[in-house]
Computed example of a mutant assay.
Amino acid sequence: MILPFKRLMLSTLVAAFAVQANAATDSTALVEPMTEYKLYVIDEVHDLVQDTRAFTQAVENGDVEKAKSLYAPARIHYERIEPVAELFADLDASMDAREDDYEQGVKDPKFSGFHRIEYALWAKNSTQGMDQFAKQLLSDTQELESRLTKLAFPPSNVVDGAAALIEEVAATKISGEEDRYSHTDLWDFQANIDGAKKIVDLLRQPLKANHAQFLAKVDHNFQRVDAILAKYRQGDGFESYEALSTRDRKALQGPITVLAEELSQMRGMFGLN
Protein backbone atom coordinates (compact mmCIF):
# COMPACT_ATOMS: atom_id res chain seq x y z
CA MET A 1 0.00 0.00 0.00
CA ILE A 2 1.39 3.41 -1.01
CA LEU A 3 0.75 6.08 1.62
CA PRO A 4 -0.53 9.53 0.49
CA PHE A 5 2.83 11.28 0.90
CA LYS A 6 4.45 8.51 -1.11
CA ARG A 7 1.87 8.92 -3.88
CA LEU A 8 2.92 12.55 -4.22
CA MET A 9 6.57 11.52 -4.23
CA LEU A 10 5.78 8.83 -6.80
CA SER A 11 4.29 11.30 -9.29
CA THR A 12 7.25 13.64 -8.85
CA LEU A 13 9.74 10.84 -9.33
CA VAL A 14 8.01 9.53 -12.46
CA ALA A 15 8.61 12.87 -14.15
CA ALA A 16 12.23 12.98 -13.01
CA PHE A 17 13.04 9.46 -14.14
CA ALA A 18 11.30 9.91 -17.47
CA VAL A 19 13.82 12.60 -18.34
CA GLN A 20 16.78 10.45 -17.24
CA ALA A 21 15.54 7.33 -18.99
CA ASN A 22 15.07 8.94 -22.42
CA ALA A 23 18.62 8.04 -23.38
CA ALA A 24 17.86 4.34 -22.99
CA THR A 25 16.52 2.22 -25.82
CA ASP A 26 13.75 0.96 -23.55
CA SER A 27 13.20 4.21 -21.71
CA THR A 28 9.49 3.86 -20.99
CA ALA A 29 10.07 0.39 -19.52
CA LEU A 30 12.47 1.84 -16.96
CA VAL A 31 10.46 4.79 -15.64
CA GLU A 32 8.15 2.96 -13.24
CA PRO A 33 10.78 0.43 -12.00
CA MET A 34 13.22 3.23 -11.21
CA THR A 35 10.54 5.12 -9.34
CA GLU A 36 9.56 2.05 -7.33
CA TYR A 37 13.22 1.38 -6.60
CA LYS A 38 13.58 4.89 -5.19
CA LEU A 39 10.72 4.18 -2.77
CA TYR A 40 12.36 0.88 -1.79
CA VAL A 41 15.66 2.66 -1.11
CA ILE A 42 13.93 5.33 0.98
CA ASP A 43 12.35 2.62 3.14
CA GLU A 44 15.65 0.78 3.53
CA VAL A 45 17.70 3.85 4.42
CA HIS A 46 15.04 4.86 6.95
CA ASP A 47 15.38 1.45 8.60
CA LEU A 48 19.16 1.81 8.41
CA VAL A 49 18.98 5.01 10.44
CA GLN A 50 16.64 3.49 13.02
CA ASP A 51 18.63 0.28 13.48
CA THR A 52 21.96 2.11 13.50
CA ARG A 53 20.61 4.40 16.23
CA ALA A 54 19.86 1.36 18.41
CA PHE A 55 23.26 -0.18 17.60
CA THR A 56 25.27 2.97 18.32
CA GLN A 57 23.28 3.63 21.49
CA ALA A 58 24.32 0.21 22.78
CA VAL A 59 27.92 1.06 21.92
CA GLU A 60 27.74 4.37 23.78
CA ASN A 61 26.14 2.61 26.74
CA GLY A 62 29.05 0.19 26.87
CA ASP A 63 26.77 -2.82 26.33
CA VAL A 64 29.07 -5.06 24.29
CA GLU A 65 26.75 -8.05 23.95
CA LYS A 66 23.75 -5.98 22.90
CA ALA A 67 25.87 -4.05 20.40
CA LYS A 68 27.12 -7.33 18.94
CA SER A 69 23.54 -8.58 18.53
CA LEU A 70 22.51 -5.38 16.70
CA TYR A 71 25.53 -5.09 14.39
CA ALA A 72 24.50 -7.40 11.54
CA PRO A 73 20.77 -6.48 11.56
CA ALA A 74 21.70 -2.81 11.11
CA ARG A 75 24.15 -3.48 8.28
CA ILE A 76 21.73 -5.44 6.09
CA HIS A 77 19.88 -2.27 5.13
CA TYR A 78 23.09 -0.72 3.82
CA GLU A 79 24.05 -3.91 1.98
CA ARG A 80 20.68 -4.10 0.19
CA ILE A 81 21.06 -0.62 -1.31
CA GLU A 82 24.83 -0.56 -1.71
CA PRO A 83 24.80 0.28 -5.46
CA VAL A 84 23.22 3.68 -4.80
CA ALA A 85 24.70 4.22 -1.34
CA GLU A 86 28.13 4.00 -2.94
CA LEU A 87 27.30 6.94 -5.20
CA PHE A 88 28.44 9.04 -2.23
CA ALA A 89 32.08 8.02 -1.93
CA ASP A 90 32.71 10.14 1.16
CA LEU A 91 29.95 8.50 3.15
CA ASP A 92 30.76 5.02 1.88
CA ALA A 93 34.38 5.45 3.03
CA SER A 94 33.31 6.80 6.39
CA MET A 95 30.68 4.12 7.01
CA ASP A 96 31.87 0.95 5.31
CA ALA A 97 35.67 1.09 4.80
CA ARG A 98 37.88 -1.78 5.93
CA GLU A 99 41.15 -1.52 7.78
CA ASP A 100 43.03 -2.45 4.57
CA ASP A 101 42.01 0.92 3.12
CA TYR A 102 44.25 2.74 5.61
CA GLU A 103 48.03 2.82 5.94
CA GLN A 104 47.92 2.36 9.72
CA GLY A 105 45.10 -0.20 9.65
CA VAL A 106 42.91 -0.24 12.74
CA LYS A 107 45.15 2.35 14.40
CA ASP A 108 44.52 4.92 11.68
CA PRO A 109 42.37 7.76 13.07
CA LYS A 110 40.54 7.98 9.73
CA PHE A 111 39.33 4.39 9.97
CA SER A 112 35.71 4.69 11.11
CA GLY A 113 32.26 3.26 10.57
CA PHE A 114 30.77 -0.19 11.04
CA HIS A 115 34.02 -2.09 10.70
CA ARG A 116 35.94 0.12 13.12
CA ILE A 117 33.32 -0.58 15.78
CA GLU A 118 33.18 -4.24 14.73
CA TYR A 119 36.89 -4.52 15.48
CA ALA A 120 36.44 -3.09 18.97
CA LEU A 121 33.48 -5.33 19.78
CA TRP A 122 34.92 -8.65 18.63
CA ALA A 123 38.70 -8.26 18.63
CA LYS A 124 38.82 -6.28 21.87
CA ASN A 125 35.44 -7.25 23.36
CA SER A 126 35.11 -3.61 24.35
CA THR A 127 33.42 -0.34 23.45
CA GLN A 128 36.19 1.77 24.96
CA GLY A 129 36.97 4.81 22.82
CA MET A 130 34.10 4.06 20.44
CA ASP A 131 31.73 6.88 21.39
CA GLN A 132 33.05 9.24 18.72
CA PHE A 133 32.83 6.56 16.04
CA ALA A 134 29.30 5.64 17.12
CA LYS A 135 28.15 9.25 16.92
CA GLN A 136 29.79 9.70 13.52
CA LEU A 137 28.24 6.51 12.14
CA LEU A 138 24.74 7.56 13.15
CA SER A 139 25.33 11.03 11.70
CA ASP A 140 26.57 9.48 8.44
CA THR A 141 23.46 7.31 8.09
CA GLN A 142 21.26 10.34 8.63
CA GLU A 143 23.19 12.27 6.00
CA LEU A 144 22.89 9.32 3.61
CA GLU A 145 19.12 9.30 4.12
CA SER A 146 18.96 13.02 3.35
CA ARG A 147 21.03 12.71 0.17
CA LEU A 148 19.27 9.62 -1.17
CA THR A 149 15.85 11.17 -0.62
CA LYS A 150 16.84 14.09 -2.86
CA LEU A 151 18.59 12.00 -5.52
CA ALA A 152 17.14 10.79 -8.82
CA PHE A 153 19.02 7.57 -9.47
CA PRO A 154 20.61 7.08 -12.92
CA PRO A 155 18.94 3.98 -14.45
CA SER A 156 22.34 2.59 -15.46
CA ASN A 157 23.48 2.56 -11.84
CA VAL A 158 20.40 0.70 -10.71
CA VAL A 159 20.42 -1.90 -13.51
CA ASP A 160 24.17 -2.39 -13.12
CA GLY A 161 23.67 -2.55 -9.37
CA ALA A 162 21.99 -5.96 -9.52
CA ALA A 163 25.16 -7.48 -10.96
CA ALA A 164 27.50 -5.36 -8.85
CA LEU A 165 25.94 -6.60 -5.61
CA ILE A 166 26.50 -10.22 -6.59
CA GLU A 167 29.91 -9.70 -8.21
CA GLU A 168 31.29 -8.24 -4.99
CA VAL A 169 30.21 -11.31 -3.05
CA ALA A 170 31.79 -13.67 -5.59
CA ALA A 171 35.01 -11.69 -6.04
CA THR A 172 35.92 -10.54 -2.52
CA LYS A 173 33.34 -11.10 0.19
CA ILE A 174 33.38 -14.89 -0.20
CA SER A 175 36.83 -14.86 1.42
CA GLY A 176 35.37 -13.53 4.66
CA GLU A 177 37.27 -10.25 4.51
CA GLU A 178 34.20 -8.04 4.92
CA ASP A 179 33.16 -8.96 8.45
CA ARG A 180 36.48 -10.47 9.46
CA TYR A 181 36.00 -9.94 13.21
CA SER A 182 32.32 -10.72 13.71
CA HIS A 183 32.06 -13.39 10.96
CA THR A 184 28.54 -12.18 10.19
CA ASP A 185 29.27 -12.37 6.45
CA LEU A 186 26.26 -14.52 5.62
CA TRP A 187 23.95 -11.71 6.77
CA ASP A 188 25.65 -9.45 4.22
CA PHE A 189 25.48 -12.10 1.48
CA GLN A 190 21.73 -12.52 1.95
CA ALA A 191 21.22 -8.75 1.99
CA ASN A 192 23.19 -8.41 -1.26
CA ILE A 193 21.12 -11.19 -2.84
CA ASP A 194 17.90 -9.55 -1.63
CA GLY A 195 18.96 -6.17 -3.03
CA ALA A 196 19.80 -7.64 -6.43
CA LYS A 197 16.58 -9.66 -6.49
CA LYS A 198 14.56 -6.53 -5.77
CA ILE A 199 16.00 -4.85 -8.86
CA VAL A 200 15.20 -7.88 -11.01
CA ASP A 201 11.67 -8.06 -9.59
CA LEU A 202 11.07 -4.41 -10.47
CA LEU A 203 12.30 -5.08 -14.01
CA ARG A 204 10.33 -8.34 -14.25
CA GLN A 205 7.60 -7.11 -16.61
CA PRO A 206 9.87 -5.84 -19.41
CA LEU A 207 12.25 -8.78 -18.91
CA LYS A 208 9.40 -11.28 -19.16
CA ALA A 209 8.08 -9.57 -22.28
CA ASN A 210 11.41 -9.43 -24.11
CA HIS A 211 13.81 -11.82 -22.40
CA ALA A 212 11.69 -14.57 -20.85
CA GLN A 213 14.32 -17.30 -21.15
CA PHE A 214 16.93 -15.10 -19.49
CA LEU A 215 14.55 -14.25 -16.65
CA ALA A 216 13.79 -17.94 -16.05
CA LYS A 217 17.52 -18.70 -15.76
CA VAL A 218 18.08 -15.81 -13.36
CA ASP A 219 15.12 -16.84 -11.19
CA HIS A 220 16.45 -20.40 -11.07
CA ASN A 221 19.89 -19.25 -9.97
CA PHE A 222 18.48 -16.94 -7.31
CA GLN A 223 16.64 -19.97 -5.95
CA ARG A 224 19.86 -22.01 -5.95
CA VAL A 225 21.76 -19.36 -4.00
CA ASP A 226 18.89 -18.83 -1.55
CA ALA A 227 18.69 -22.60 -0.96
CA ILE A 228 22.41 -22.77 -0.13
CA LEU A 229 22.22 -19.80 2.25
CA ALA A 230 19.15 -21.31 3.93
CA LYS A 231 21.28 -24.23 5.13
CA TYR A 232 23.19 -21.88 7.40
CA ARG A 233 20.25 -20.02 8.94
CA GLN A 234 19.96 -19.79 12.71
CA GLY A 235 16.79 -18.18 14.02
CA ASP A 236 16.41 -14.76 12.43
CA GLY A 237 20.01 -14.75 11.23
CA PHE A 238 22.90 -16.99 10.26
CA GLU A 239 25.60 -19.05 11.86
CA SER A 240 29.16 -17.77 11.99
CA TYR A 241 30.93 -17.70 8.64
CA GLU A 242 33.86 -19.40 10.40
CA ALA A 243 31.74 -22.54 10.58
CA LEU A 244 31.80 -22.91 6.80
CA SER A 245 34.55 -25.09 5.37
CA THR A 246 36.54 -24.20 2.26
CA ARG A 247 34.37 -26.68 0.39
CA ASP A 248 31.20 -24.96 1.66
CA ARG A 249 32.49 -21.58 0.50
CA LYS A 250 33.36 -22.89 -2.96
CA ALA A 251 29.92 -24.48 -3.25
CA LEU A 252 28.44 -21.05 -2.59
CA GLN A 253 30.85 -19.16 -4.83
CA GLY A 254 30.01 -21.14 -7.98
CA PRO A 255 26.28 -20.31 -8.23
CA ILE A 256 26.93 -16.73 -7.10
CA THR A 257 29.50 -16.25 -9.88
CA VAL A 258 27.08 -17.62 -12.49
CA LEU A 259 24.34 -15.33 -11.22
CA ALA A 260 26.63 -12.30 -11.39
CA GLU A 261 27.59 -13.10 -14.98
CA GLU A 262 23.95 -13.38 -15.98
CA LEU A 263 22.87 -10.16 -14.29
CA SER A 264 25.68 -8.26 -16.01
CA GLN A 265 23.80 -8.77 -19.30
CA MET A 266 20.85 -6.63 -18.25
CA ARG A 267 22.58 -3.35 -19.06
CA GLY A 268 22.61 -4.23 -22.75
CA MET A 269 19.05 -5.51 -22.65
CA PHE A 270 17.84 -2.07 -21.61
CA GLY A 271 20.04 -0.15 -24.05
CA LEU A 272 22.28 1.27 -21.35
CA ASN A 273 25.63 0.33 -22.89
Rank of each mutant, 00 (worst) to 15 (best):
F270Y: 04
L263T: 04
K217Y: 01
M9K: 12
K150H: 01
Y71M: 15
K6Y: 05
Q234N: 15
H183L: 02
A164Y: 05
N157H: 08
L138Y: 13
L10T: 04
L229V: 05
Q253K: 15
S126A: 11
P109Q: 09
R75W: 06
K208P: 00
S94Y: 02
T12E: 10
I117S: 08
R75V: 00
A123D: 13
D108V: 09
K231A: 06
D201A: 07
R116K: 15
E177W: 02
A54P: 04
A251K: 14
L91D: 12
D194I: 01
A212D: 09
G176Q: 06
E65W: 05
A251D: 10
L244Y: 07
T35N: 00
M269K: 09
S94Q: 14
K231F: 04
V41G: 05
D226W: 10
G161M: 00
P33A: 02
P206R: 04
E32F: 12
K110P: 04
E261Y: 06
I117E: 10
G268N: 10
G113Q: 07
A123C: 05
A162P: 06
T246F: 10
D96P: 07
A260N: 02
L229G: 11
S156T: 11
F114V: 11
L151A: 07
A58L: 10
A24K: 05
A72C: 12
R180V: 09
V158Q: 04
N192D: 09
L30Q: 06
A97R: 11
D194P: 03
Q132R: 13
V19I: 10
Q205S: 07
A162G: 06
F222N: 03
D100V: 11
N221R: 15
A58Y: 14
R204D: 10
L272I: 04
L259M: 07
L244N: 04
T257I: 01
L121C: 05
H211L: 01
A24W: 08
N157C: 03
A54D: 14
R233T: 15
A162C: 08
N192M: 02
A72Y: 07
F189D: 07
R53H: 14
S182G: 14
T184Y: 03
F153C: 03
D194E: 14
L48V: 03
R98E: 02
Q128T: 13
A93H: 07
K135V: 14
N157G: 12
E239I: 14
K135M: 04
F111R: 11
L91E: 11
